[in-house]
């Protein structure tokens, strides 16, 4: 039975009518056109679809859209400033070449930001452990870890756009 849900996506209120079985990732990609959130597997293992749900990183392919009724969702599209300035974590991935094909990158960046908000000064080991849910098939983990450590440093210094919204 279709259900009408209202949620906040990247700070904007959104109301849509969805089927009970519609996944959050389908709502984002197919209903809202936010295709920055990727689908890399069918088994909830790859982490390409990670978004923030009420400030915490989740796999949007393992959440029903109806479960997000009333929630705040943040996707990769919501990270950069209005003038195009990248979020410090995005900038760190660019600077350290934390990607090869780029398919896993949106999920990596969203997981990394949640990681740094919980562990502002992560060790390399913590970064590797915390990224267990994000698979990179180009085997580019070394630069991804470097990027996350560097992004964490910038987030500590220059601040974290969106952190206040996540804490609400």
């Amino acid at each position: 039975m279709p259900t009408t849900i209202t949620l906040s996506v990247n700070g904007r209120p959104v109301t849509r009518t969805v089927e009970s079985r519609t996944l959050l990732v389908q709502l984002l990609r197919e209903h809202l056109g936010l295709t920055g959130t990727h689908v890399g597997c069918d088994t909830c293992q790859c982490g390409a679809c990670v978004v923030h749900l009420n400030g915490r990183s989740v796999k949007s392919c393992a959440v029903l859209a109806v479960q997000a009724d009333g929630a705040e969702v943040a996707t990769i599209e919501g990270l950069a400033a209005a003038d195009g300035t990248l979020h410090p974590m995005q900038e760190a991935f660019r600077k350290h070449h934390g990607l090869q094909c780029g398919f896993c990158t949106p999920g990596m960046v969203m997981s990394a930001i949640d990681l740094v908000r919980r562990h502002p000064t992560p060790t390399e080991r913590q970064v590797r452990t915390e990224l267990e849910g994000n698979l990179c098939r180009c085997t580019g983990y070394h630069n991804i870890v470097r990027a996350v450590l560097s992004g964490a440093e910038t987030m500590r210094g220059a601040g974290d756009p969106g952190a206040a919204a996540a804490a609400d």
Binding site: G47, E132, G133
Partner: peptide, 9 residues
């Protein structure tokens, strides 16, 4: 348990 995203849900 699982990974960070699984633990969040």
């Amino acid at each position: 348990v699982g990974d960070a995203q699984v633990r969040n849900r």
